[in-house]
Amino acid sequence: MRFRTLNDIAEICREESLAISELMILEQEKETGQPKEEIVAQMAGYYRIMKEAVRKGLETETKSRSGLVGGDARKVNEYASASEPSVGDWAGKAMAYALSVSEVNASMGRIVATPTAGSCGIIPGVFVSSQERFGWSDEKLVRGLFGAGAIGYVIANNSFISGAEGGCQAEVGSAIGMAAGALVELRGGTPEQAVHAVGLALKNTLGLICDPVAGLVEVPCIVRNGLGAVNALAAADMAMAGVRSVIPSDEVIGVMLEIGSKMPSEHRETALGGLAQTPTGRKLTEKIKAAKSSGRTSG
């Protein structure tokens, strides 16, 4: 890849008059030797799966494997359709769709990791709701995924994208940054604005720990996806309005690395701290363990 940082991306795009998504497609062709049509077709397949997951979570009763969560996407979707959500109708939709995909994930359904399964709701939530809202074609959204991928590639290689390595800031935080930057491009913003959107978004999740109750990708992961989708919309709006990330986005990514590296292991997906170790978190963990040992034999 010709880029290592978000600044590289903005520079190359400016010099060569490329959108971030176009740059990503070109670099992907070079890296894999696959023709453009093949690469785009693969991504189009991924987008179909994202849309399917949005639909599945809204139409069917998803229950997580533990029974702890499920059905919240439908609640929010119905509320957003029937009344006036405080965040506005479309942010309400984005939130419902993000919850939906995350609930499908928790029920061991089929999703696309974007960048991870724990954060798989945010990009589909933002993309599918924006597609409905603005009447965009699938092709446009598929291109948008390459833009999101370019941003994620930089974050992943300069910091991390897994909760076990860097906490939830690395998962949900990265997904929000990717969605925000991609949305700026989809709405006609410049690559530079897209890069600022990433920094603006990431600053709001710096330090977020990964503290899943009973170690499951359920509580608080699913609601964080719903809220994350709304954050992505907001960060994209700020950047489109001309707000800049005063601390450059690449430096913010560096801070994520710094914080994640110093984060105690209790707060990196081990379920040994945070919400997982609250009195209620512990009680739920015990309950799930008891249900599991009575209901299933282990290998």
Partner: peptide, 15 residues
């Protein structure tokens, strides 16, 4: 590359 970020297609719950 891009599909190590967007992808894989997988059954949940954790990548």
């Amino acid at each position: 590359h891009v599909f190590s970020i967007i992808g894989p297609v997988m059954v949940g719950p954790s990548s």
